[in-house]
């Protein structure tokens, strides 16, 4: 079993008497990429801030590499690299000065480490210029370099692809994937680009109103799907589903809906036909993670 890098257990956070996070638990293993999804105001950012030590949980524990972020802050944080809500660096300094300064804050970061991180994000050419002259995309790259100089075990990225062009996003995706696969870094990415998460992440956690609504592997999420059929005999079709496949379906607007494992769909369809049911239309309700996300977080009412 892979080593657990990040563990959240029943984390609560109350800000000004309002409970923003209502008991969140999840974990990330070495080399795993977890996508953190949720509508605006769901508590994504608050959770990420607690993981990187910018704010303290009201209740619950957060461990990074088995070091508690509250009790053993320095040890835990030495394993964490992050970009929280945009790569905010010192505009009045050069990219190189920024990195040198931040590198000095960690023990044992060498010039070679800095150069390695810079090459990884492809920022060699503009490093001597002031950050104020950078485009947002370049700032994102520098932000990532900053998060990597001290060889973290956990990378926490909040909306990391904001401001990157399509080529940049693609490149960024490859960097993240290779960091996870080759160096075994655990990555936590929050994003509102669900297609991004679908392409980049192994696991996904969908949160709303401070609660994790769905937490599973992306492949499981997409293979377990709600399907609807248009048939000429709804009652009979439901019976077949129940008796043969042990699946409970329901009738919605003259159609049958049921949640099944996608791999069983051909089998079910064949069974319908064999039993004399005329099948006119079959479709899966959620084609993408985005549909699933919208369905799960449906009726999100931010202001409560």
């Amino acid at each position: 079993m892979a080593n657990q890098v990040l563990l959240l257990e029943d984390v609560h956070k109350t800000i000004k008497g309002k409970e923003i996070i209502k008991g969140i638990s999840f974990s990330i293993d070495e080399g795993e990429v977890l996508g953190f999804l949720g509508p605006n105001g769901a508590g994504k950012s608050t959770t990420l801030r607690m993981i990187v030590g910018l704010s303290k949980p009201t209740k619950g524990t957060i461990d990074v590499c088995n070091h508690s972020i509250t009790k053993n802050y320095v040890k835990a944080m030495s394993k964490v690299g992050c970009i929280i809500e945009g790569p905010d660096l010192y505009n009045y300094m050069s990219g190189k000065d920024n990195l040198n300064m931040l590198a000095a804050m960690n023990k044992g970061v060498t010039e070679a480490d800095i150069n390695h991180a810079v090459e990884l994000v492809g920022m060699q050419n503009r490093l001597k210029d002031k950050v104020a002259t950078y485009s947002l995309g370049m700032k994102q790259r520098l932000g990532l370099a900053q998060a990597l100089i001290h060889h973290p075990k956990l990378l926490v990225l909040d909306e990391p692809t904001n401001g990157l062009d399509p080529a940049g996003i693609n490149e960024f995706r490859h960097i993240i994937k290779s960091l996870a696969k080759d160096e075994g870094i655990a990555v936590l990415i929050s994003s509102h680009l669900i297609s991004e998460v679908e392409l980049m992440c192994d696991k996904v956690a969908i949160i709303k109103d401070g609660v994790v609504l769905k937490y599973s592997k992306v492949s499981d999420l997409l293979s377990s799907q709600e399907i609807f059929w248009e048939v000429d005999n709804n009652i009979k079709a439901l019976e077949i589903l129940k008796e043969t496949f042990n699946v409970t379906g329901k009738i919605v607007k003259d159609k049958i809906e049921a949640t099944i494992d996608m791999s069983r769909l051909p089998e079910i369809n064949a069974s319908f036909l064999n039993n004399g049911i005329k099948l006119s239309f079959v479709e899966n309700k959620h084609k993408t993670l985005e549909d699933l996300f919208l369905d799960i977080t449906e009726g999100a009412n931010i202001i409560k």
Binding site: V74, K75, M77, C82, D88, L102, M105
Partner: peptide, 14 residues
């Protein structure tokens, strides 16, 4: 103001 407090306080320094 410049939000750089985030990179300053997410290092392994109390």
């Amino acid at each position: 103001s410049s939000k750089t407090i985030k990179i300053l306080l997410t290092r392994a320094v109390p």
